[in-house]
Amino acid sequence: MSIENRLAELGITLPDAPAPAANYVPFAQSGNLIFISGQISADENGLIIGKLGENMETEAGAAAARRCGLALIAQLKAVTGSLDKVKRVVKLSGFVNSTPDFTEQPKVINGCSDLMVEIFGDAGRHARAAVSAPSLPLGVAVEIEAIFEVE
């Protein structure tokens, strides 16, 4: 089954690939690896702002991380033209806007990790970092960058 068919089967619509907000490119490719710049948590209503452990619960953070994952996949599709060229998700690096005593960063970033496996199956399993940050750009709850291997 193609990835496009898989997305349709799951009822997932990708957002438009976000434009860079500063002096950087949305991706860089080296050989068969595509490095997608950090995607911040946003949905159709705008930025998802919050600080985990202060004014946002873990489940809401995981939903924000899922939105980052959708943006990562949208960027990847813009680069490759077809998600069927994806051989595997290599690595995710997730940053969680959280208080010093918040310790559920892995549960938050699971929102993105689970999405990758849901869409790409075993090829979606990846290495990962899930770390806390005292603040993130524009006050967003989550930012995630990714490395993908393509054909």
Rank of each mutant, 00 (worst) to 15 (best):
E151N: 11
P18E: 01
R128S: 14
L10S: 08
A64W: 00
P15R: 08
A123T: 10
E9S: 12
A62W: 11
A28S: 10
L10I: 06
E143K: 02
G111F: 14
N97Y: 11
A21L: 13
F120T: 03
P26S: 07
A17D: 04
N97S: 04
A146Q: 01
I144L: 07
T80M: 05
F102H: 11
E104P: 06
I48L: 14
N45I: 13
E118H: 01
E4V: 11
K77Y: 04
Q75I: 10
V25E: 03
I49Y: 10
R6P: 12
G111N: 05
R128D: 09
L52V: 06
K91V: 12
E104G: 09
A19N: 07
I49C: 11
V150N: 02
S98M: 07
A78D: 14
S98L: 03
N55W: 13
M1C: 03
E9C: 06
A141M: 08
N5C: 06
L136Y: 13
A28P: 02
T58F: 09
S2R: 08
N23F: 08
A64T: 05
I3P: 02
A146Y: 01
A141W: 03
P20Y: 05
K91Y: 14
G139F: 06
L14F: 12
V79S: 08
G121L: 02
F35E: 04
K107W: 00
A17H: 00
D16Q: 08
L136S: 02
L76Q: 08
I34V: 15
M1A: 08
K87M: 13
C68R: 02
P26C: 06
L115N: 01
L115G: 01
A129F: 15
C68E: 00
L92E: 03
G139T: 12
Q105V: 09
R6F: 07
G94A: 05
D101E: 10
R67A: 03
G50I: 15
A8S: 13
G61V: 11
D101M: 12
M116S: 01
A146F: 05
V108M: 08
P18H: 07
A64V: 11
P18D: 00
A71Y: 08
S93R: 15
L136P: 00
V150K: 07
M116I: 05
V150E: 09
I109N: 07
Q75H: 02
Y24I: 12
S113C: 04
V25R: 06
Y24D: 14
T80P: 07
L138K: 11
K87D: 12
V96N: 05
G38A: 09
V108C: 10
E59C: 00
D43W: 01
G69W: 08
S93T: 14
K87S: 07
L83S: 04
